[in-house]
Computed example of a mutant assay.
Amino acid sequence: MENKSHAFAAGAFVLVVAALLTALAAWLTRDTAEQRVFEISSAEGVTGLQSQAGVRYKGVMVGRVTDIALDTVQRGNVLVRIAVNDAAPITTSTFATLGFQGVTGLAFIQLDDSNTASPALQGSGDKVPRIPMRASMFSRLSEQGGNLLSQLEQASVRVNGLLAVDNQKQLMAAIGNLGRAAASVTALTEHADQVLGPKSGPDAVSLPRMAAQADATLKSMQATSDRLGVSADAVRTSAAEFQRTSRRMNEPGGTLDKIAQSTEALAHTSRQVNAQLLPRLSRATDDTARAVRQVGRAADTVGDNPQSLLWGKGTATPGPGEHGFVAPAAAAAGGP
């Protein structure tokens, strides 16, 4: 009885440890990135594709296959649901193909995009957005396999017909005719050499002289070609120098760039002058005019009352309503 309890305890411990290890592996391999769900409707078979198969975007792993079932919207199609990382640039021009891993035959979903500038693929309402499925290279080869075999069979039949007994006889006859024609050409060449040789008379055409003239003509043409080649090299060199000069002028830090920078600096200096120096000059001009007016008033005061330089301006004469005001008539009457 005690042995059974020990065995039960050991089995329970093993089960608990296995569960903990499974939970730890699931926790370590979990995908914490945000994912989006897409659907792929394929009119072709998806043999070799299984749930949890990889989803790659241009070869980079971006998600997993979550479910494979028959499409209820498009009858006869296979519906593949995938979960893709939110960072994957899935656009309206993204398409899917079925890829295979090496010799294992395991399939995966390959995503590609013909125009990455397209807008992001979004679903309408509660509908899951769908990515179109294109035929893979293996599928196209499978479709064209029958045609290739048919064409190969037709080519084999034609080759067999070409190599029939009658055709072989005609081919051998044609080869014999070609041999006789070659012999006739050789004989004609020997006869022409005898007729056109240097011992055929004074009026005969001299082949050696013609060959010498042709050699001289060819040498002259070669010299002309060499001179043309030198001229062409010079033209190419000039063009390359002009191209380099133009590139230096147009590249960053070049002549045009420096001119643009100098123009920008001059414009910036002009803006600073307009924004800072001109207002200061205007204020200085106003201050100078104010000082000139004050000097003019001081000069007028000195001119009217020169003793003010010694005694100061003195007490101002009381005006009407002020204490000590004397009317002009009263002042004239009380005078000496």
Rank of each mutant, 00 (worst) to 15 (best):
N3S: 15
F8K: 15
F8H: 14
G11A: 12
L15Y: 05
V16N: 14
V17A: 10
A25S: 07
F38P: 02
E39C: 04
S42V: 03
G48H: 00
Q50K: 12
S51P: 10
S51F: 10
Y57D: 08
Y57M: 13
R64C: 14
T72H: 15
V73Y: 02
G76D: 01
N77G: 09
R81T: 07
I82A: 03
A83H: 03
N85M: 06
S93N: 09
S93Y: 04
T94R: 03
T94P: 01
I109H: 06
D113T: 05
S114C: 07
P119C: 02
P119V: 00
D126E: 15
V128P: 04
R130E: 10
M133N: 04
F138C: 08
S139W: 05
S139L: 11
L141R: 11
S142V: 14
E143R: 14
G146M: 12
N147Y: 12
L148N: 08
S150Y: 12
Q151M: 12
Q151C: 06
L152I: 15
L152F: 14
E153I: 15
S156K: 10
S156D: 10
G161S: 05
V165L: 12
V165A: 13
K169E: 11
N177Y: 07
L178K: 12
A183C: 05
A187S: 05
D193R: 06
V195R: 07
P198K: 06
K199D: 10
A204Q: 02
S206I: 00
L207G: 01
M210T: 02
K219R: 11
S220R: 11
Q222N: 14
R227I: 13
V230Q: 15
V235C: 12
A239V: 11
F242I: 15
F242P: 04
R247N: 13
N250A: 13
E251A: 06
G254F: 04
K258S: 09
I259P: 01
A260M: 07
S262F: 13
V273W: 06
R280L: 10
T288R: 08
A289H: 07
A291G: 07
V295T: 09
R297C: 07
P306F: 02
P306S: 01
L310H: 03
W311E: 06
P318M: 00
P328C: 01
A329E: 11
A330Q: 05
A333Y: 05
A333G: 03
G335C: 07
